[in-house]
Write a protein that binds this DNA or RNA. Structure first.
Length: 845
DNA sequence: GAATGAAGTATTTTT
DNA sequence: TACTTCATTC
């Protein structure tokens, strides 16, 4: 960003920073200096209006955003900024509930279940109810519960019309009961309980209403129903709230975000001022023109047009590739050119719609010896070994935590197998007691063998020992070290010294370091006075703000006093909360001087000098899954996603597409994305490979596609194959004038003449009865069959053949899939299923 | 409870 | 294709 911009706000920005007395809605276009405006507004609230910093609440969606605001504020106006409450919706609500939740019947020591914990709990509830609990089902049911919670619906609010409805209600009820018994809240609960408290518990509402004088909500287009209602309730007294957002960057509808909240806001706060930030400081006019070409065709948007005064730059570059491997090479080529032009590798980012696309790029980059970092892997606290240790911590913290119990009762293996746990679970359901309690005295568990009883008791004793010692030393770090040693995790990992185990040990060591650091920063250890503000957790600042407000007589500016405040919450409770609510993605080691690869979603909120967006193809970006075709809302969100991707770029923007791509093992003909076509109508530069490499940059006025000689359509006879081929080919080649089919010795050749005078021969292969093109045929019932011609001849089986399977007995082949290894779909007595060909014998006739 | 093999299933992700 | 998960067997 130019330094001049740092010093001065433009007119719209000035308006947003100055409108501080009532509700305000700011539409902040991509790269319009949003964070700057927010930070400046906060500064003025404190400096000009005399608002006490701890009475300002700024809510964001991610810890990253909260941290950025806190840091930018500190840079702008120093110490006062530290007392402003910057936090996520979830961390703020967790704090509210910790401090004021007793009136809602909540324990001060509740634990927070993350998604994985939630699934474990749901799975157990399904089992308790005697229902199927396969992983895919668990995920689906958990999703349904979450959807209900996001809309603020309790089990009794749900419809019970169908069987599935009733199943959900039954499960949801049981799940809530399980949470209660484990003193646990899931992520949605943090919001939902806060809202319920605000609505039904006057004392809770009063305390929070009085607590803040100014509210600020970032990324408002991402709020869901419950979040909106919380904001509304919190602001009802003073109505001094500022919501900032951009409807064009709303890309989280699928997780409950409700874009309509922007409109609702103007109804509920009809006196609100509205400010539009439309000047972009990030991108070149070329990039902005491309982005605008896409977003301007969006439906149902707030009318606004992003413009820039930045100097002209380079044309947007469109790469037409034959396949994904060539797309990888195209990226490499773009990287080389950017580096030649003086960009650093860390200036360059590759975005893709789905993570599956990253593989080929990783291969290409590794081959070229290019350092890169990739986002979207497992986060640190999601790694198994870390979750194990944390589960021990949780079990020490609360013996009711059955989810934690189930995770570690046999981790590391200590001879308490599935069957034993099963029996324990059955018994626990009957008694309604926590698993750990029963394990302390396992004699009463029916059918449990003596060994298992002994081992369970030993496990329970281990936990209670750890807990007893923790009560004395009260150090999370010491407890963590004890767990590592005494649980047997250390022994198990050191015993066989594989590379993986070494990595796991390193991770655990890293965890222990972070615990020590956390403890130091939060005054849990004797030398807590050395607390360093720069390392504070957001939740810690929040705790400070709340507790100092709750005890106004205690001064809050002295760090050593803050430790005393935190004493109000168990250190272990506080630590566990900080890791579930503030777990960040692990970044690769090579953060410096490395390329960045990430999904478009994770790119939101970031910017890079050079951006390459891969896979701009129909069906991939916009992503489309079957059944989606007619959903205009889904398509509109993809459009906004493309807009987000493009507006991340500062100087150079590359878009690419491949004509063929392997999707779920099937080679598919890919058409360019409509978004790409919209951009290609502008003066862009087209690049394509001549088979040896990419030609140097050259200006182009329109995008033209060539068909690859190996692609196909779907058909069940030769004529259809030729026709499908023709129409696909025609669609892919806008310049195509005519296609002439010629059949000779079982092989059809299509000759096409293009308008530019060129002509080309493409052959369509066909075999007995069913047509093939590029070794693919289509069966009548809609399943693909693909095969190599040579393989087909070797196969002893044919469609319709009677076969025998070792396990399933006699059957008839419905169709053959000659992927490697080859399979067939066979109609057995028990119904059709797909089996490996190697398990089949021809039935004697 | 490990090892094997067969079958099922394929976005986006933060808290 | 490539992954995970489930069932069976040793």
């Amino acid at each position: 960003m130019a330094s001049l911009v740092e010093l001065q706000l433009n007119q719209a920005q000035e308006a947003a920073a100055n409108e501080r007395q009532g509700p305000l809605q700011v539409f902040a276009g991509a790269g319009s200096g949003k964070t700057r405006v927010i930070v400046e507004r906060v500064r003025r609230l404190i400096a000009l209006d005399g608002v006490r910093p701890e009475r300002i609440l700024a809510l964001t969606f991610t810890n990253r955003a909260a941290r950025e605001m806190r840091e930018r504020s500190a840079a702008l106006f120093g110490a006062e900024a530290e007392r402003v409450w910057f936090g996520t919706f979830h961390s703020a609500c967790a704090r509210f509930l910790r401090f004021y939740g007793e009136s809602l019947g909540l324990s001060r020591n509740f634990v927070v279940y993350d998604d994985a914990d939630q699934r474990t709990a749901v799975s157990r509830c399904l089992r308790d109810l005697g229902r199927a609990n396969a992983a895919a089902d668990v995920r689906a049911w958990a999703g349904r519960i979450n959807r209900a919670k996001q809309e603020g619906l309790a089990p009794q609010d749900l419809p019970e019309r169908t069987y599935a409805d009733r199943q959900l209600v039954e499960l949801y009820q049981r799940y809530e009961q399980a949470l209660k018994q484990s003193q646990a809240l899931d992520f949605s609960d943090l919001l939902l309980r806060t809202l319920q408290g605000l609505r039904t518990e006057p004392s809770f509402r009063l305390q929070l209403e009085r607590r803040f004088d100014q509210l600020l909500i970032d990324e408002f287009q991402d709020t869901n129903q419950v979040q909106y209602a919380i904001v509304q309730a919190l602001a009802s007294r003073h109505r001094c709230l500022c919501v900032v957002g951009d409807d064009d960057q709303s890309i989280y509808r699928w997780r409950g975000a409700n874009r309509d909240n922007l409109r609702r806001f103007r109804e509920d706060f009809s006196e609100a001022k509205v400010v539009l930030l439309e000047q972009n400081y990030r991108s070149t006019p070329e990039i902005l023109a491309a982005a605008n070409a896409v977003i301007s065709r969006g439906r149902d948007r707030e009318p606004k047009v992003l413009h820039t005064e930045n100097p002209a730059g380079h044309s947007v570059c469109v790469w037409s590739c034959h396949d994904s491997a060539e797309e990888g090479r195209a990226f490499l080529c773009a990287v080389d050119e950017a580096v030649d032009a003086g960009f650093a590798l860390s200036d360059i980012a590759l975005f893709y719609r789905t993570h599956a696309q990253s593989r080929i790029f990783e291969e290409v980059l590794r081959q070229a010896n290019m350092p890169y970092r990739i986002f979207g892997g497992l986060r640190f606290y999601e790694r198994a070994e870390i979750k194990d240790i944390v589960a021990y911590l949780r079990l020490v913290h609360l013996s009711q935590d059955d989810v934690a119990f189930l995770r570690v009762v046999n981790t590391p293996a200590r001879g308490i197998g599935k069957t034993s746990v099963e029996r324990l679970l059955l018994h626990a359901v009957e008694l309604g007691l926590p698993l750990l309690d029963i394990s302390t005295n396992p004699a009463s568990v029916p059918d449990l063998n003596a060994n298992a009883k002994r081992r369970l008791a030993a496990f329970a004793a281990l936990i209670s020992q750890l807990r007893a010692r923790y009560r004395v030393h009260r150090s999370v770090a010491t407890l963590t070290a004890d767990i590592f040693e005494e649980s047997g995790i250390k022994a198990a990992l050191t015993q066989d010294a594989t590379v993986e185990n070494q990595a796991r040990l390193d991770n655990i060591r890293e965890l222990m370091n972070s615990v020590i650091e956390w403890e130091r920063a939060n005054g849990g250890m004797p030398d807590g006075s050395s607390a360093d503000r720069s390392t504070q957790e957001p939740s810690e600042t929040a705790a400070h703000a709340l507790s100092s407000e709750a005890n106004p007589e205690v001064p809050h500016s002295d760090p050593s006093q803050r430790a005393a405040h935190l004493g109000a919450i168990e250190p272990l409770t506080a630590f566990l909360e900080s890791i579930t609510l503030a777990s960040e993605a692990v970044e690769g080691e090579e953060t410096h001087g490395a390329l960045t690869l990430m999904s478009v979603h994770s790119a939101k909120g970031l910017e890079f000098p050079v951006v390459f967006v891969a896979g701009m193809e129909h069906g991939l970006f916009p992503y489309q899954r079957s059944g989606d075709e007619g959903d205009p809302e889904a398509f509109e969100e993809e459009r906004r996603l493309a807009y987000v991707a493009m507006t991340r770029a500062e100087k150079l923007l590359h878009l690419s597409h491949a004509t063929t791509r392997r999707i779920y093992g099937q080679l598919r003909l890919q058409h360019p994305s409509p978004f790409l076509e919209e951009v290609a109508a502008l003066p862009v530069e087209e690049r394509r490979s001549d088979g040896f490499g990419f030609s140097p940059r050259r200006p182009l006025t329109h995008l033209r596609l060539t068909a690859s000689p190996s692609f196909g359509g779907y058909s069940d006879d030769a004529d259809n194959a030729a026709n499908t081929f023709k129409s696909d080919y025609r669609r892919a080649t806008p310049t195509l004038m005519g296609v002439t089919p010629r059949t000779h010795q079982g092989s059809t050749t299509l000759t096409h003449a293009a308008s530019d005078g060129a002509s080309d021969d493409v052959s369509v292969q066909q075999r007995t009865g069913s047509a093939t093109r590029d070794a693919e045929t289509f069966e009548r019932d809609g399943t693909y069959v693909d095969y190599e011609e040579s393989q087909l001849e070797e196969l002893p089986f044919s469609i319709g053949a009677q076969v025998l399977h070792e396990r399933f007995g006699p059957g008839r082949i419905l169709h053959i899939v000659t992927a490697m290894p080859p399979r067939a779909r066979v109609d057995f007595d028990t119904g059709p299923r797909q089996v490996l060909l190697s398990y089949l014998r021809l039935a004697p006739s």
